[in-house]
Design a protein around this nucleic acid. Structure first.
Length: 611
DNA sequence: GAGAGTAGCGCC
DNA sequence: AAACGGCGCTAGTCTC
């Protein structure tokens, strides 16, 4: 029997309210069409749910993260099951793979957008409106924003528009809703054409729908916030800021306008004046680093370095402290929904497929040092214990696996010390043994640098050696790991030739013109880690869909869970076993490499469980 | 007023 | 010939 495709979309209250409103109230107007059939508009929630359940395939734009995510209620696992069962075709996800946002494009308003591939900006490129514009597709009619303005009080800010004020019987609104379905149907067919032309592996597309489905589930699960603890942190930071600002005003007549006076034009002038008084100018300090646009860098690190040993040191320290303050606790509170949880938006729009997490961006939360206490106000649900697991040196393991370099693999064996190994290559055994601690510290810096193919000049500058010494080390490193070097060269060539590189699962990743030397290897390494992590999560949810509720966050090579308190130890062991794997690339040169996760203690908040 | 691009902090 | 990757969040600035 012929499979039936349902093209579907819904108009709703403002996004974000789905966590404080029943689904049948949150949805306002539903649009759908079967195959080539006419577009049906309905306000009947039950009718819409029924057709979605009846369809062999549901096709829509951003439906995994949005429409299907609330349709069955935010406590439901049904949409995740649909993604795993290959019943959902999200044109937003499909477009992200076959027509990812380019570096630059011209939008419907005629303005040119640069740096458009960055995930925040890629959202706009991948919007139904823009894709319809880019590919000259029929359907989209009018602007929802303009319509909302008509029904909101005069002078309402765009960011405050209430979309639920548009009457569902407004003819323009209904025309817009209908046009959405026409556009998404045209887009789907256009993307299929691209898919076929590119010979993109279909298996990867289905797997990607499942991964977005898991991420949507993670969003719905959310993380409980201890708002009292977050408020304490906000107050604590404000107090130290006030004290520091007071001192700056008294001693340097520092401006106080705005939240970041040091970032204003006036503030920057005062900083430069204070430094100049102590004889610190670009002339006396030609090594003073500059920003990409040529301005003098005034970051905390620069100010400390420049003022050390001068009268201005106390000033430099004060500025560094203020610039280092971040409002994470405030962000956490601002992102908390009425159910007491954050429900971050999760997308896989980074070119490597790594997840972007926003509102709040959990991937930027401090993991080490003093700032790590910020994690304390993310807490385990009642009746659960929090667990964090991670893959150690994941990207290096990916390189070992893909390159098949047996010597490089030795760095990752149990008990091996990768930093020491690099240190011995760099310093030689004799010098290394003379001062192991300093040598190892330098080597740690170097390891991060060589992973991304640093050049001799920058390496020399970073580590404080001559360019000749850096060159010699890079040569030695390549000699020690010839198969890694070969793999890097091949990846670079692949990126240069095709404009993209592929990982072992079939993901294609765009490489910017002229940046293949450093970008190609990085993308393959990062994406391999990403795929291994999601393979693990897929195993978890396929074993038992209910356990999808355990997953609370992913941070590139780490996953946070909330496990039922009863038998939490046993569950933790099961999670580790299920996430761990041995990766053997399909490529001929590759080798099998162990990707085991290690775990922290079971705890009641994120800070405790990651320490 | 809103969108775009910039700087500077942080994460893996 | 040389080449350190991928991001998010905030605030202030520029432009239309």
């Amino acid at each position: 029997m012929t499979k039936r495709y349902l093209f579907a979309d819904a108009e709703t209250h403002n996004a974000g309210k789905e966590y404080s409103m029943p689904a049948r109230e949150f949805g306002r107007l539903y649009q759908y069409a079967w195959d080539d059939g006419p577009v049906v508009l309905t306000e009947d929630y039950d009718e819409f749910v029924a057709v979605v359940r009846e369809a062999d395939y549901v096709v829509g734009h951003n439906i995994i993260n949005f429409d299907l995510s609330w349709l069955f209620g935010t406590e439901s696992l049904e949409s995740l099951q649909m993604c795993l069962d290959r019943k959902v075709i999200d044109t937003f996800v499909l477009a992200s793979l076959v027509t990812p946002a380019p570096y630059m494009y011209t939008n419907a308003q005629g303005s040119t957008v640069f740096d458009a591939a960055k995930p925040e900006r890629a959202m706009k490129y991948l919007s139904l409106d823009n894709l319809a514009h880019q590919f000259n597709l029929p359907g989209k009619v009018g602007s929802l924003k303009d319509l909302a303005k008509k029904y909101n009080p005069a002078k309402t800010l765009v960011s405050n528009l209430d979309y639920s004020l548009i009457p569902t019987d407004d003819p323009e609104f209904r025309e817009y809703a209908e046009g959405d379905i026409v556009a998404v149907r045209a887009l789907y067919r256009y993307l299929l054409k691209l898919l076929k032309e590119q010979n993109y592996p279909g298996e990867y597309i289905w797997r990607e729908m499942a991964i977005w489905g898991i991420n949507a589930q993670i969003s719905r699960n959310g993380i409980l916030v201890d708002t009292a603890a977050a408020q304490d942190r906000v107050d604590e930071l404000a107090a130290s800021r006030d004290k520091m600002m007071k001192w700056l005003v008294e001693t340097h007549d520092f401006p106080t306008e705005g939240k970041a006076p040091w970032a204003t034009t006036q503030g920057k002038t005062v900083i430069l004046d204070v430094l100049a008084e102590s004889g610190i100018t670009p002339d006396t300090h030609p090594e003073w680093p500059r920003t990409p646009t040529g301005a003098l860098k005034l970051g905390g690190d620069e100010l400390i370095a420049l003022t050390t040993g001068t009268d201005a040191f106390e000033f430099g320290q004060a500025m560094a402290m203020l610039k280092g303050q971040r409002s994470l606790a405030q962000l956490a509170m601002d992102s908390t929904h009425p159910d007491g949880k954050v429900h971050p938006d999760i997308t896989c729009l980074q070119r490597s497929g790594r997840t972007s997490v926003q509102r709040p961006g959990l991937t930027v939360w401090s993991a080490h040092g003093d700032g790590a206490v910020e994690k304390r106000y993310f807490v385990a649900d009642p009746g659960t214990k929090m667990l964090e697991v991670d893959y150690s040196a994941a990207d290096a393991r990916a390189v070992a696996a893909m390159s098949g370099d047996p010597e490089f693999a030795k760095r990752l064996e149990p008990g091996a010390d990768a930093h020491e190994i690099t240190g011995r290559i760099f310093f030689g055994d004799e010098a290394y043994d003379a001062d192991p601690e300093t040598s190892r510290h330098t080597a740690k810096q170097i390891n991060h640098s060589v992973a991304y193919r640093i050049g001799s000049k920058k390496l020399a500058a970073n580590v404080g050696i001559t360019v000749e010494e850096a060159k010699e080390f890079l040569r030695l490193y390549r000699d020690t790991y010839p198969w890694v070097a070969r793999w890097q060269d091949n990846a670079t060539q692949e990126g240069d030739t095709f404009g993209f590189v592929s990982n072992d699962w079939g993901r294609r990743m765009m490489v910017d013109e002229g940046r293949s030397f450093t970008q190609s290897c990085a993308l393959i390494g990062q994406s391999t880690t990403r795929e291994i992590l999601f393979d693990g999560l897929i195993r978890i949810v396929r074993y038992d869909l209910e356990r999808a509720r355990w997953i609370r966050a992913t941070v590139h090579d780490a996953v946070v869970f909330c496990l039922p308190e009863d038998r939490a130890d046993e569950h933790a062991q099961w999670v580790c076993d299920t996430m761990s794997t041995i990766f053997k690339p399909k490529t001929q040169l590759g080798q099998a490499i162990d990707f085991s996760v290690s775990r922290g203690p079971l705890a009641d908040n994120w800070f405790e469980c990651s320490h």
